[in-house]
Simulated scan of single mutants.
Amino acid sequence: MFNQAPFSCRVEWGIRGAREAAERGDIIIIVDVLSFSSTVISALRQGAIIYPYPPNLDGKSFAEKIGAEYILGRAEAAKAGKPTLSPVSFKKKHYNKKYVLSSLNGAFCTWMAAKVPALLIGSLLNASAVASVANKLRLQSKANITVVPCGEQWNEVREHENSLRPSIEDYLGAGAVLSYLEGEKSPEAEVCIGAFQNAKEKITELIWECGSGRELRQKGFEEDVSHCSRLNIYEAVPILNNDHFVSAN
């Protein structure tokens, strides 16, 4: 059976990887660069309270139940002047307000892996900071660490096809986080780190031109792509506390 069992720092893709890491009892770092992870980090930095919620359940009803606002799609929210999955949409005026955030990738992976010793949110924005927190938690709990690049979903999936679309922005984000983690790395993690280190000097250009980056830019969200490509600009580290994120540092 496939596993990375001998190693304390691992990398696993998507919802399946998140579930298996949770079943092992690992510390999990969810990486969804464009844009769930970057949005949660940016929102936490502004003092907003984010409740992750899977898109296949009724997030609007959940938001009403807890007295939160359900986050709309990018275009719809932009017209209404509300915060959205766009990380740059969160401002100081959103301090201490509750928001329910659904997404096909990052929120879904978070939901799948919620019951673990610690679930952290990582991205390029906070790669060093989230790794520092994870290193401390590993020493305290003796648990292993799995970094989960979420990837994207293919549209119009045909019968017998897998819907996961691996994405370079999440792979590079995972490599950045892994590069700062302590402990023995699996071969899969070492290769992921190597990809990040090779791309580090041109990471902004690579994410700008990658498929996911171009997809967002074509929809008018160039600022999101630029923002999410920046390395280690924030110290904010979201950690899941029951059903919402709080600061881990």
Rank of each mutant, 00 (worst) to 15 (best):
V133W: 00
V133P: 01
L137P: 06
Q140C: 09
A143F: 04
A143H: 01
A143V: 05
A143C: 12
N144A: 11
T146C: 15
V147I: 14
C150Q: 05
Q153H: 12
W154Q: 09
W154M: 08
N155Y: 03
E156I: 00
R158L: 15
E161I: 11
S163Q: 13
S163M: 15
L164S: 01
R165I: 02
I168V: 15
D170I: 09
G173S: 14
V177S: 00
E182F: 11
E184K: 15
E184C: 09
P187H: 04
E188G: 05
A189R: 11
E190Y: 00
V191G: 01
V191F: 05
A195C: 06
N198I: 05
A199R: 00
K200H: 09
E201G: 04
K202E: 00
K202G: 03
I203L: 08
T204P: 03
I207L: 13
I207K: 07
W208I: 04
E209M: 14
E209D: 12
S212E: 08
S212M: 06
G213Q: 04
E215H: 13
E215K: 08
E215P: 02
L216A: 09
Q218Y: 14
G220A: 02
F221L: 04
E222L: 04
E223V: 06
E223C: 01
R230Q: 15
N232T: 08
I233Y: 09
Y234N: 07
Y234L: 14
Y234D: 05
P238Q: 08
I239C: 06
N241F: 12
N242R: 14
F245S: 10
F245I: 12
